[in-house]
């Protein structure tokens, strides 16, 4: 069954077409990169998939739930990490996690179990009482990822999550999220950085609002490096 299905989605800001008949299907347990240069429409697609925007053209469904017709069921199955950081820096790590769990409607023992699990994954149990402000950029991001998993979603969406991080943190987070995909989660990772993608990952290449190609990274790269294939493709504006 496809875990995330985007069918024929188009979106315009006034006269400007941001997305043009975008379609793709993704199964569970994959790491899929949404690869595109700045301005390709990644953030628009991301906003549509998290229902910050709504379009009448096309459908998006998550684990079989249509986002337009049954938004709450669909949203409950999505974990989101936005490009901007969304931690409350004046609250402690624990308070941030509790607040999010409550927004998902989790309380009591169930919430506590999920939060404990998140702290465990973060290896931050002893820092739970610290203000989020005290964490460095990499830790904050990891915390947002752990937080996005509190309600046990089926799909984890991340919008350029490594922006502004140093190389070490970037590598660690990319590896961490790849590991998550191996546990059966579908990871959908928007980026313009090719080095975050591994050979066996799925890649959807988005350019000027259109899907140029959807395949594994290895197949798209062919006999050259992925970066070269990507540059050629976006320069010509058509699949390699």
């Amino acid at each position: 069954m496809s875990m995330l299905a985007v069918r024929d989605v188009s979106y315009s800001y006034g006269a400007k077409r941001a997305l043009d008949h975008v379609s793709f299907d993704l199964p569970a347990g994959r790491f899929c990169a949404l690869l595109g240069p700045n301005g390709a429409g990644k953030s628009t697609l991301f906003s549509l998939m998290t229902r910050l925007l709504v379009t009448r053209q096309g459908t998006i469904s998550v684990a079989g739930h249509d986002l337009a017709r049954n938004p709450r069921a669909a949203l409950a199955r999505i974990g989101v990490v936005f490009q901007q950081q969304t931690l409350d820096l004046d609250m402690t790590v624990l308070q941030n996690l509790r607040y999010f769990a409550a927004l998902q409607g989790l309380s009591g023992a169930a919430a506590q179990r999920s939060i404990d699990g998140a702290l465990e994954r973060l290896d931050m149990r002893e820092r739970a009482g610290e203000k989020a402000r005290a964490l460095n950029g990499g830790h904050r991001r990891r915390m947002e990822i752990a937080r996005a998993l509190i309600h046990d979603p089926k799909v984890l969406m991340l919008d350029e999550p490594t922006v502004g991080l140093d190389t070490g943190s970037r590598k660690a987070i990319t590896a961490h999220v790849h590991d998550l995909a191996e546990t059966g989660l579908l990871v959908f990772w928007a980026t313009h950085l090719v080095d975050e993608i591994r050979d066996h990952d799925d890649v959807v290449v988005l350019h000027q609002g259109r899907v140029l190609r959807h395949d594994t990274a290895a197949a798209i790269a062919g006999d050259q490096a992925l970066i070269d294939a990507f540059i050629q493709m976006t320069a010509r504006g058509e699949p390699a």
């Binding site: 998290t50 229902r51 938004p71 709450r72 949203l75 989101v80 936005f82 950081q85 969304t86 927004l103």
Partner: peptide, 17 residues
């Protein structure tokens, strides 16, 4: 800052949030 996004992507009705 983005934390409104967090609120709006919660699976509860938006009017309630």
């Amino acid at each position: 800052m983005g934390s409104m996004r967090l609120l709006l992507t919660s699976p509860l009705p938006r009017w309630w949030l």
